[in-house]
């Protein structure tokens, strides 16, 4: 298992997958006691990381604008009025 310096860089999928594999391994009793405690701490961190991604991420809506040199820029965009009518 490669040691990562910054778990913050993990995507939700990566963190979620690693969390799953740790839990499965613990459930199957694959770790020794000390290893399990270390892994469970990591699992907790991964869980918190996942949760943070989900709950702290602000839903941003942006639209792309092209600068004069053709570079795209993302600028905030107001969500259109919420009409639930489907087309």
């Amino acid at each position: 298992m490669a040691k990562r310096d910054t778990d913050k860089d993990l995507t939700f999928e990566q963190a979620r997958a690693e969390l799953e594999s740790i839990i499965t391994a613990i459930e199957q009793g694959k770790f020794g006691l000390e290893e399990m405690i270390a892994q469970s701490e990591r699992a907790k961190r991964l869980h918190d990381h996942c949760k943070r991604i989900l709950t702290e991420a602000e839903a941003r809506i942006q639209r792309l604008q092209l600068a004069d040199d053709g570079t795209p820029l993302a600028v905030p965009m107001e969500p259109p009025p919420d009409e639930s009518a489907e087309e």
Binding site: T55, A57, E58
Partner: peptide, 17 residues
């Protein structure tokens, strides 16, 4: 936009018009 915000409000949406 409506669907994504309703289901998964933590995702950012980038529109290329």
């Amino acid at each position: 936009l409506h669907t994504i915000r309703r289901r998964y409000c933590c995702a950012s949406i980038l529109l290329h018009p």
